[in-house]
Design a protein around this nucleic acid. Structure first.
Lengths: 240, 240
DNA sequence: GTCTATACAACGATAGAC
DNA sequence: GTCTATCGTTGTATAGAC
């Protein structure tokens, strides 16, 4: 099942949000489904509602004071579930972090490649990819923030997966730039460094969400600025 | 006492490193001096050596698994000091984090403004500021990384100081861009957003230090790329 | 100035009642 | 399916010997 409801690529953030059949509730369903027969709670409606509550509370508390500093007792009071109740849904604290990381990441590449695939020229694909990434991180800001800040606390295998996914996104953009260089759409050839810097700019949006909100800079304007900055560097006209 | 030994602005990183009278040992001295009469250990040589060990160990462990997940027992074994011994130098775990944040930050604005002050045109000042920031974060990478990742765990007053210092650096760059717009050195006028994005690029250098090392990208090349990217956006020639 | 020994709170996790 | 009660561990911090 894809998370993108419509195959048309929406250009505005409002349209993007509507086309995207993602919500925190939706992800909770995926987590329950992934747990499968292993889950102790069989009633789907009850289970999904509680997983949703647990994940929301974890993101809220961990993004404020850090996951390591968030105790299961904090989580217990925030969700309204008891300590014992929590353990009906998670097998331990570490697994909870891994769960959020895994399911949060799963949709990123999916959505990105889907939105970029629609366009034809390298420049248009690049622009679509940048916008999709920013829009997605706007909708799922807590997930992205958590993913960045808590990746280094994960166990070895999960950490490796996180790093791989990180590189995958960057590679996606680098390949696009290489394609643009080859087709002579771009006039500069430093795809590796440019992709790395693009990544830094995309990350800044969800890492400093509060700063941009205080300054009344919305995601559309930020996207325009990133595209303008990158395109002027690559030697591409603004109206692609 | 300034941390810059020579008033001439060195352009290469090698020269920068030599002119900068900063070392981890040097900062340990400043921490001891700031503790003043409050310090329980009166022998300066002994005290500074141990503070140095404690700070080094804290940065090493905290930057690997997070400050919250780093126990004072970890710190005790890493430094070779006993639990009781540690408390001769710090009054608690929280104070230790605040100490590193405070003394690490103190030098940034100092060095930055000093290096930018030498140049005359806005473009040259901007270039010097970018290079100084990158070179400084290269020398003190663990401090910068710790400052970014652990800022949100600080107590209210320390957190406010961290945010203020963060904004101060960005403002420094924004003012420069405004000056360049006014003097018509730059042809674009979006100083606020451009400064924010520059900050994101500067941060990426110390947040992803390992990635750039693996790819054999050194600080000189990264600095050139950041300057090129920004200057092409601002409409400035490359040879300022 | 540094150590050992210890106090005491908070943590993750589990068992068994309901 | 959820709760209360409790286990053992680990954490920060301190007192007093040396």
């Amino acid at each position: 099942m894809s998370v993108v409801a419509d195959s048309a690529a929406p250009d505005s953030f409002t349209a993007f949000k509507e086309c995207l059949a993602i919500s925190e509730h939706h992800i909770a369903q995926q987590i329950w489904a992934a747990g499968g027969a292993g889950s102790k709670v069989k009633n789907e409606a009850v289970a999904v509602a509680n997983i949703d509550k647990i994940v929301r509370a974890t993101l809220k508390l961990a993004n404020k004071k850090g996951f390591a500093a968030t105790s299961l007792r904090d989580l217990s009071t925030e969700t309204g579930l008891s300590m014992g109740g929590l353990y009906a849904y998670i097998s331990g604290k570490d697994e909870l972090a891994a769960l959020i990381q895994h399911h949060g990441r799963a949709i990123v590449i999916d959505v990105l490649s889907q939105y970029m695939g629609i366009e034809t020229t390298a420049a248009a694909k690049l622009r679509a990819g940048i916008r999709a990434h920013l829009f997605l991180s706007e909708v799922l800001q807590p997930w992205f923030f958590f993913g960045f800040m808590e990746a280094r606390h994960l166990a070895k295998p999960q950490k490796a997966a996180a790093i791989e996914s990180e590189q995958e996104t960057e590679t996606l953009f680098r390949e696009l730039m290489l394609a643009g260089e080859k087709s002579a759409e771009f006039s500069v050839n430093d795809a590796e460094l440019s992709a790395a810097m693009l990544k830094a700019l995309l990350q800044d949006w969800y890492l400093k969400r509060g700063k941009y909100r205080r300054r009344n800079i919305d995601v559309e304007r930020y996207a325009d600025q990133v595209v303008a900055l990158l395109f002027s560097h690559l030697g591409v006209g603004k109206d692609v």
